[in-house]
């Protein structure tokens, strides 16, 4: 499944970049994080309870930041496994200065879902994924704006 989109953030690009570039950013981006710790440079391991409404499951996984190109882009590579199944994916976040005070965040993500959730949840997976990505990015944008 491929997703892409963009968000406008009312904050300068440098500021947004700083906000995006630490473990707290990941905590904000990934909904339902219960624990997250750094295990290697740019690599984090954690547990998150992910889902929509009452359709939720706990996943354990790692997420890694790669191809870091300050202050414009990085790639997130992650995978998680849990009772409902496993998720693997990567996404690129690109920041473009729309004006000195606003930044456009573009994202491109490619996600693979496996296990029970893939075999019984087809009707809802795409919608739920979009919802979660948008919620995460929106929270991140708000965080960047607050920090600015």
């Amino acid at each position: 499944m491929k997703f892409s989109g963009s968000h406008t953030i009312n904050a300068p690009r440098e500021r947004v970049w700083t906000t995006l570039n630490d473990i707290e950013a990941l905590r904000t981006l990934i909904p339902g994080v219960e624990s997250l710790e750094q295990t290697a440079p740019d690599t984090y391991h954690g547990v998150a309870k992910i889902g929509v409404a009452s359709i939720k499951g706990e996943y354990t996984g790692t997420i890694r930041m790669a191809d870091i190109d300050p202050p414009s882009s990085y790639r997130l590579v992650g995978e998680g496994r849990g009772r409902p199944g496993h998720v693997k994916g990567e996404g690129t976040i690109t920041l473009v200065a729309a004006s000195p005070e606003t930044t456009t965040l573009h994202y491109d993500a490619d996600m693979q879902v496996g296990g029970p959730i893939a075999s019984v949840g087809q009707r809802l997976i795409e919608g739920a994924s979009k919802l979660l990505i948008n919620q995460g990015l929106k929270a991140l944008a708000q965080k960047a704006e607050r920090a600015a």
């Binding site: 009452s54 359709i55 939720k56 499951g57 009772r83 409902p84 029970p116 959730i117 019984v120 949840g121």
Partner: peptide
């Protein structure tokens, strides 16, 4: 809706 989701372990109230 709820019971099928529970039987599939998608929902665990």
């Amino acid at each position: 809706s709820l019971l099928p989701a529970m039987k599939l372990h998608l929902s665990t109230p």
